[in-house]
Design a protein around this nucleic acid. Structure first.
Lengths: 331, 331
DNA sequence: TTGAAAGCGCTAACAA
DNA sequence: TTGTTAGCGCTTTCAA
């Protein structure tokens, strides 16, 4: 009952038509009479024929697939699975891909073997590739090979990208904290080599300078543990801190835990504003006031851009980063 | 500089060898002398030749890809992006796929068009397909078409699956709560049509019966909102509740918020045990004691099973669900 | 409207 | 060890 897969030849033979006609019918292409169509359709149903996508792709020269590259640090899945970011980009892509019958290929790429992997992905890309997170070097290299690329994070100038206002978001967050009367506003930053983190740090520093306040910061890792540790360090170093701007919700979740563990209350003693508006923001207690990074919208836009054709060099689409007020800033 | 992609013919011609030899060298297949290898490699490097995977797959009859099916409810991405579960299955699959050069194709499938989609995926599956979440009907239908299928959740008897001890986990959770001296143990269940949720509910009910306690439950949706609402309802209906078993961490996060909002303390007044040990468990405040569902391990095992060949009908691999103690059960 | 025939780029017998 | 020759299953001119 199984093991055998009918080919279009089988369909054609059984229907008593040529392979070309069978192909036309199967593809709903013009140039086949109704009686022919009926015959072929009947056979297709009877045999349970399903076109071989590989052959189809080879023959037609086009295959509809978008590739997603996610960096994995060393062995293992890295961020994926431990950080909400990736599932948000996938979630953003799905709806736009659903209607257009294109498949989504996910490529975990680690820093060590990145060069080769990128080369191969570029060679076999069709609709294009979405860079979930990528270093400028990597993005540039990929873009040179295959122009149908969109990055979700800031990379090189030429590589088309979706650009969220990370700097502006951080700037706004600090100002919100200031508006609430906070004056000792510390920061928990992301990794020093992460482009989003760099922008957010910049926004924080600018805001503090503009407000005439002193910057106090600690570096985190974009994970809960790092946020927890950083908050503890900050509080020890300067017990008078009355607000924290945290560069990602996951770290903010850790910070909230650390702060309450020292006997302080959030938001009464220390107000917190996170960044991302990911699932972590609503899981904390109290829920986090945060700067919303519209990841799903960005991923959807990136996908649509690829679907619509080759994005031009240096293409930019800007996204605002807006304040979402929850309980970590106001009792 | 772009637009042209060298084929293996170009390589062969430039190297002055036959296509077969070029192919052998590129594939590291035996039967080519060192001088030949050197010549071909040089040309490959010079031309920047990259094999066309589609042609390769068609010619060799094998393509290494594993398909992942994730259900999307209606329009949009459904769970993906809003529930940590999916990224965990992807994260579990990545490491095992990384070494073996096989690609991962992600298929969002919605209930309405599921039948057709399944048919096509089955027809083009190669290594096999992993069902992240699937109804028995769907799993059975897919399994009939393509025997290389592994489900991550309980489905039909014949469909190979990774089976976590959901019932035992729930049973153990309730007993832990009882051991801590709790006697009014309520439950927040998952969706009535979700097989995992059904098993967890069963475990809860059995435990309460065995302990001679009265069951009190509310239905949730496996999301934070549902957990929040359910906890509120429960507390209103029976203010004396001193513990809750919540069928998923996301709901538990909502429950913690709801409980503290009523002025009660976690864990002093109400102890909570969640389920999953997802990212949500460590973001809550206090962090959640939970029953660990080893999703990554299960996904990795499922992938390996597919890589090793066709799983036999009814294949089962069992996974324990273990208690992870954090602060929601003990001050 | 239909069919014959030439590939898509590659692998894998089989000969030499 | 090397090259020649068929295809893999399908699409797509081009004639009929």
């Amino acid at each position: 009952m199984s093991g055998f897969r009918p080919t279009i030849n089988d369909v054609a033979r059984a229907a008593g038509v040529s392979r070309a006609t069978a192909s036309r019918v199967v593809n709903n292409a013009p140039g086949a009479s109704d009686p022919m169509r009926a015959r072929v359709h009947a056979v297709v149903a009877e045999l349970g024929y399903q076109p071989n996508e590989t052959a189809r792709a080879l023959a037609s020269g086009r295959r509809r697939a978008v590739d997603v590259i996610a960096m994995t640090s060393g062995a293992g899945a890295g961020w994926l699975g431990t950080h909400p970011y990736f599932s948000r980009v996938l979630a953003g892509m799905m709806p736009v891909l659903e209607g257009v019958d294109a498949q989504l290929r996910l490529h975990p790429v680690n820093r060590e073997t990145a060069a080769d992997a990128i080369e191969e992905i570029a060679a076999n890309a069709t609709l294009g590739v979405v860079l979930a997170d990528a270093t400028p070097t990597l993005a540039t290299r990929l873009y040179r090979r295959c122009r149908r690329v969109v990055s979700m994070v800031p990379t090189a100038a030429s590589v088309p990208g979706m650009e969220a206002d990370n700097t502006g978001g951080a700037y706004a967050a600090v100002n919100e904290l200031h508006r609430l009367g906070r004056r000792r506003i510390a920061a928990i930053h992301g990794p020093a080599d992460n482009s989003c983190a760099i922008d957010r740090r910049l926004g924080y520093l600018r805001a503090l300078e503009d407000l005439g306040l002193t910057a106090v910061g600690a570096d985190g890792d974009f994970h809960r543990e790092g946020g927890h540790a950083a908050a503890l360090r900050l509080l020890e170093q300067d017990p008078g801190i009355d607000a924290m701007f945290v560069a990602c919700d996951l770290m903010a979740a850790g910070a909230v835990q650390a702060i309450t563990a020292t006997g302080r209350r959030v938001p009464e003693d220390v107000s917190i504003i996170g960044f991302d508006d990911s699932i972590a923001a609503v899981c904390t207690n109290p829920p986090l006031t945060t700067m919303r990074l519209p990841v799903e919208e960005m991923a959807a836009a990136a996908t649509r851009l690829l679907l619509d054709g080759k994005p031009i060099a240096g293409h930019r689409r800007h996204f605002p980063v807006e304040l979402v007020v929850r309980q970590s800033t106001q009792g």
